[in-house]
Each structure stands twice: as C-alpha cells, then as structure tokens.
Computed example of a mutant assay.
Amino acid sequence: MGTTSPARRHADMEAPPVSSGMLRNVLREVPTAVTVVTATTGDRPAGLTVGSFVSVSLDPPLIGIFVDEKSSSWPEMRNSATFTVNVLSGDQQELCARFAASGRDKFAGLPLQKSPLGNPLLPGIAAWLDCRVVEVRKLGDHHFALARVAGLGTTAATTSIVFHRGTLHAIP
C-alpha cells in the first residue's frame, strides 16, 4: 500500500479548488511562443496553430507540443511520424489566425517549401524545427506530442510572436 507524505496531505487539504477560468487568468501573465505545426498526411499538407510549445531536453534534443482535444486538424496529423514547428515572425498575425481556424484550406495561396523531413515550411517564419514523434498521449483536455528534433534553422526574420494577456505581440 502506498502512503502519502505529510507535506502532500497538508497541501491537498488546504488548497482551494482551481477552476479552469482561474487558471486561464493567471496563465495570461505568462508569455507563450506562437507556432504553426505542419505535417504531411498522405499526399496533402495539414497544419494548426499551437500556443503551447516547450523545450523538453537539450541532450537528447526533445521538444513538446500540446494540442487542444477539440482541434479539428489534429486527428489527421496525430498519426504522422514527423511534424515541423514553424516559429512565426512578428508580422505573421494573419498566418496565426489562418491556421487557428477550421474548415478551410489553410495552405491556399501560400508559397511553400518542404522541410528536410518533407513537411511544409511556411514563408517568412523566424525559425523551424523538424521533429520525429517519440510519443503522443492525452493529458487532461490536450494531447501532448513529444518529439526529437531532427533538423532546425533560423531565417532573416527580426522578430517573433508571443501570446500574452490575450493578444499577440511582436518581440525583437
């Protein structure tokens, strides 16, 4: 039988319940990177805006993304063995909105290049990371994809975007 430490029992007894709204209000104070994750599914590109992108490990090089379980794009991307993280530059708010929306061809009219792993690289991005999926698991109301970085690069973009206090901001 497992036992709970006295410190853990104490913290559990005194902690007030945390609602999703309370958590969202506090997390608004933490700037987050804004990325578009792309993959090739079958013979067509797929992509979605991801605001929860994290560095997991430098050695080995691992990153993670968190995708809302309600995403309409994730089901077609979920089983892909690779994806590419496109780090948006400071002037790409429209591209962020385009890939956050559902129900349309997000790639229409975009001049695309392919990453070394064959996924779409978006024009004008600040940086990119080509990734091989290690594991995907459901955590709460999100799916977490852990991936090993297989290639990466930066561009001439001078700014990137962060999401802070409910709005997008360009940072130098």
Rank of each mutant, 00 (worst) to 15 (best):
M1N: 07
M1K: 10
T3H: 01
S5C: 03
S5V: 03
P6F: 04
R9E: 14
D12E: 09
D12M: 10
E14A: 10
E14K: 04
E14L: 14
A15S: 14
A15Y: 00
P17I: 04
P17L: 05
V18N: 00
S19E: 10
G21E: 15
M22K: 10
L23I: 10
N25T: 15
V26M: 08
V26D: 00
V26R: 03
E29K: 07
E29H: 12
E29T: 12
A33H: 01
V34E: 04
V34G: 03
V36P: 10
V36E: 10
V37K: 09
T38F: 02
A39N: 03
D43T: 12
R44T: 05
P45F: 08
P45K: 07
P45S: 05
G47Y: 09
G47K: 10
G47P: 12
L48P: 05
V50F: 02
G51Y: 04
S52K: 00
S52P: 03
S52I: 09
V56T: 05
S57A: 11
P60W: 09
P61K: 07
L62P: 05
G64H: 06
I65N: 11
F66G: 15
D68M: 02
D68C: 01
D68I: 01
E69A: 13
W74K: 04
P75W: 08
M77S: 04
M77W: 05
R78N: 01
N79H: 13
A81K: 14
F83A: 06
V85H: 05
N86I: 12
N86G: 12
V87N: 02
L88E: 09
S89T: 07
D91L: 00
D91Q: 01
Q93E: 13
Q93R: 14
L95F: 00
C96P: 00
A97T: 04
R98T: 13
R98I: 04
F99Y: 04
A101C: 02
R104L: 11
R104D: 04
D105M: 11
D105R: 03
A108F: 00
A108N: 00
P111V: 15
L112S: 08
Q113V: 09
K114Q: 13
S115L: 07
P116H: 05
L117Q: 12
L117W: 01
L117F: 02
G118K: 04
N119A: 14
L121M: 12
L122A: 10
P123A: 12
I125S: 03
A126Y: 04
A127Y: 05
W128E: 03
D130V: 06
D130A: 11
C131S: 12
R132I: 06
R132A: 15
V133C: 07
V133L: 11
V134Q: 14
V134A: 07
E135S: 15
V136D: 13
V136P: 02
R137D: 07
R137E: 07
G140A: 14
G140M: 14
D141K: 05
H142D: 08
A145G: 08
A145N: 07
A145T: 15
L146M: 10
A150C: 11
G151Y: 02
L152F: 10
L152I: 02
L152P: 01
T154S: 14
T155K: 08
A157N: 00
T158D: 13
T159E: 14
S160A: 15
S160M: 13
S160P: 01
V162M: 08
F163N: 09
F163G: 08
T167K: 13
P172L: 11
P172M: 08
